[in-house]
Design a protein around this nucleic acid. Sequence first.
DNA 1: CTCTAAAATTTACGCGCGTAAAAAATTTCT
DNA 2: AGAAATTTTTTACGCGCGTAAATTTTAGAG
Lengths: 350, 350
Amino acid sequence: MENDGTEDMGSHKIKNMEEFAALSGISRPTISKYFHDPGSVRQSTRQRIETALERFDYRPNLYAMNQNRRLTKTIGIVVPYLADPFFAEIARNLERRCLDAGFWPILFSSHGEQKLECDILDSLRSLKPAGVLLAPLGRGSDRKAVTKFCEDVPTVLFDSNIDGVGEAFIGSDNGQSVPLIIEYLCRTGAPPCFFEMPPVNPNANKRRNAYLAAMERLGHPPQIVRVEGKTWDFEQIGYDRGMEVLRRGGFATDTVLCSNDRLAIGLIAAAAALSIPVGREDGCQIRIAGHDDHPFSRFTSPSLTTVAQDYAAISNKSVEVLFALIEAKEDAGPREETLFEGKLVMRASA
Amino acid sequence: MENDGTEDMGSHKIKNMEEFAALSGISRPTISKYFHDPGSVRQSTRQRIETALERFDYRPNLYAMNQNRRLTKTIGIVVPYLADPFFAEIARNLERRCLDAGFWPILFSSHGEQKLECDILDSLRSLKPAGVLLAPLGRGSDRKAVTKFCEDVPTVLFDSNIDGVGEAFIGSDNGQSVPLIIEYLCRTGAPPCFFEMPPVNPNANKRRNAYLAAMERLGHPPQIVRVEGKTWDFEQIGYDRGMEVLRRGGFATDTVLCSNDRLAIGLIAAAAALSIPVGREDGCQIRIAGHDDHPFSRFTSPSLTTVAQDYAAISNKSVEVLFALIEAKEDAGPREETLFEGKLVMRASA
DNA sequence: CTCTAAAATTTACGCGCGTAAAAAATTTCT
DNA sequence: AGAAATTTTTTACGCGCGTAAATTTTAGAG
């Protein structure tokens, strides 16, 4: 049984931890401890294990590992709609941070469907995750199911809040961001009317109320255009409904604040299709602004003026709170809500 | 211990299959068989189990289930870049189909990074999946690692091919789709030059070669503009490089075929920023076409003329082949490559 | 060099379920 | 009706690892 010493001995595959322990000359419980937390064993033994690990290329059986562990290293990440690059981007950040912290992130998308969200939570429950980062559907969520889930599993809500549910909520401060862009719009032109997205989640209503409050404060009459639609095809909704409104003589003012960027993207497309020039320059007929700073907003024509949500802050804070929760275990403390401010992004559309 | 009979007896939580078997009056091995495949038990017993299931709300332990199973019900789905709605959309279809077939899809994104792709494959291996649907990074992939993985796990490649790797490949027929749009462009205006995306995957080269062949066949001199960049921020690359070219006097002809829609989206944004009118109408200076029919392509201004990949066909065929593979088990048969034709989507940009 | 705290080993059990084999019960067919 | 085929039950073992308790070894301090 000769070998060159650079690979696993005669490529004999290691079946279990017992065998690996024997080959590496370390007891199985210690190996087990190492895999649970590499820092929990003495530096010298850690070295020996990692040396052996390179030589023999062994990985413990995932299923056997988690079966008897009180807490797995799994972290569930649930977003309402993954085809939305906003959530794709947040999810990416979340995944990265979990991985770096030695956890095992696993990503789910509810695809805008209540049943799917419930199924995901059920699946997640049987995964016995250490914690869950959940951006709920919002209005589309089965409140009872989500509430029950959060009682069983340490869960941090983000993006879309459900009052009192989960250990914490992290999101954007619509009460700051909406007035911010409204003020900008008022200072640079006509006061905006509000093109409201379908109320699929609570942010829609929060933004509407923030619009009403800000307009009142500034002494302008509010004008709301509410668009119907229950799906998550916001661009399509913005396009279709925008088309209707524009054909019927347009909006009440020449400035439109959309309740999110995806809606604005659709509206810009509708305006383009009708050859209505959009932008802040002379000769343009309409100004359009959005909210979120969606990854594609800089590539619309004209590029979209909007309020940026602080992606990095939201994802960082979310994992931070969740990790703290996982550490603390028992003393949950009061439910905390963290809201980050939006930043004005001035581009060409308004 | 009274109860109303509609819920679980005094909400006493069932710990394991043994207990559930006792409560439902059926032997544990039969219950086990049921969970493995509900159709494998007699209809009458299936009814009894499902009735009991409603009353007691039991779910078998996922980890214990998979530990000793030769084959799990897990199916891995790996895409190179989830922030790209194209892949998000494909992944959505794939997930749905797996779920419907009684499998457990689990989604991964390589985020354009080789190391991450390798890590994902390693994790996947320890999940002992029934099969894997893999859209590799392409040029960025660690060919050896992917090859080795495919030897261990039944894998179907899609979107981006790696010769000889995996049990099958499903993708688009660039040799048909590219000439298709070239012919359209030539018939409606000037022959196109080719704005080539960074060669992150083999499709880039295939499309380039298809362009060259088609132009030669039609008797037009080919003009290729190659853009550099190693990242997956195609819109940004299209914008930046497009800006350079347009500032320097523009492209060789007034018609530009981009090697994919995301690049085209960036290029359109660049043209808009320079106030260069884009489209097929009189007065426009440049026509821009793309490839893929990206979900956002209909919302650009002007809307993007492109060739649609058949999303549904690709995802359906991929799962179909994989399921066949899982059924067949041993006799793998020869590696098959399936290419679907693209369809011309005539919009406003060209 | 001894003492002590920390870490590793030995030993042993159990988790929840897959799965095999033989026996018993049920259904289906002639 | 009885025989054959299918399904279920009984019994029993093992998977790979977590984890606890008692013991031994090791490292670091005085």
